[in-house]
Design a binder for these strands. Structure first.
Lengths: 189, 189
DNA sequence: TGCTACATGTAAAATGTTACATGATTCG
DNA sequence: CGAATCATGTAACATTTTACATGTAGCA
């Protein structure tokens, strides 16, 4: 359902083909949304049936023809209605958190190694976003509202990666404390 | 697929019925995982077929009978195999980020109000977790490994909410800057 | 008397992924 | 010559949500 709004949002910036949308999901908005190509084509068809988008066929030589989709006035209105609704904080299913919750199955040393893995992943992710941010920041500060909105969504990802990193360090810290000062399970007879 | 591991993880702490699991997904682990009851019953059946869990029937008077599920040795081994695998940072589809990305459709004033909504939601969420944290922190520091693992997963949620809050404030700040010092779109003929 | 908790399921619909299918062009 | 890019779709499968279905006990 929400994928339709992701598509409408992308089309609200610029018209494009299903393939263009696919590339956007793989690159520019991979940060916060992903979709496979069959799903994109399915949702585009559904959106067209509902009058939210239209397309024109573009014949090309040497490469496959394509359909360029454009958002309609109704599509734009629908997107706005959705944007204005209040959704609250969404709880997503987080593999990492589930793993943290399951960490008691590992011996402390291995658990610590696992947290170290999380930390490495987070640092890599953070560096990645920081690279993009450096590029985008000046453009966003002086660019049009579309640029600013893109930048705000990037900042969300950046913040997330930062929180992830801080958490992995904090968690490792707690585990290390525990290892240094182990807990007696019961009276040591 | 991953839901099976969430179920195995819960059962690795304590045996329980499908209904117990449902309540866990609604409360204790709602933070990072959710599931509907049909899905839980289906996955329990699948896990049992694969020998990962077994159940015994408990007959009750005055209320429906129940099936208490228990993880098997193979289930535990499978859960450990999964835990040890490296998953990397998972990209989830975030409604909030999508909305941030779409914010250019609103006039700056309304966009700012939207960000203020995000901030309110984040503050509420953060307060909620902080309440739980106060309760759990002492128990986690002196409790068993299961307690510590639960605590680590709570910390993840806490960090997330903090990041969300900081982002919403940062985003509002950027927008306010922009409103004070608006951008000229092109040469003003 | 009506709502909530307890407790488990099936059926149908929606949503998403993976595999299958095609076919030219460009780059290394 | 093999892989990647461009470009769109179908089919099969997997996963998830919502609606349907049932029935007791306790609380307000």
């Amino acid at each position: 359902m929400a994928l339709q709004y992701a598509i409408l949002s992308l089309l609200s910036q610029d018209e494009g083909s299903g393939y263009d949308l696919l590339k956007a999901f793989e690159h520019s908005v991979a940060n916060f949304w992903s979709a496979s190509h069959p799903q994109i084509y399915k949702e585009l068809a559904a959106l067209e049936r509902r009058g939210m988008v239209t397309h024109r066929r573009v014949v090309q030589q040497g490469r496959p023809n394509k359909k360029i989709f454009r958002i309609t006035a109704e599509g734009r209105a629908e997107l706005l209605r959705w944007l204005r609704k209040r959704h609250g904080i969404e709880g997503h299913n987080s593999i990492t958190t589930l793993k943290a919750f399951t960490l008691h199955l590992l011996e402390p040393e291995e658990a610590l190694a696992k947290l170290e893995e999380f930390r490495e992943d987070a640092r890599a992710e953070l560096k990645h976003y920081q690279g993009i941010e450096k590029d985008l920041a000046p453009k966003a500060k002086n660019g049009d509202p579309v640029m600013l909105a893109s930048y705000l969504s990037l900042l969300f990802g950046l913040n997330y990666a930062r929180g992830y990193l801080r958490w992995s360090e904090q968690a490792a810290e707690l585990l290390r404390e525990r290892m240094a000062r182990p807990v007696r399970k019961a009276r040591t007879a």
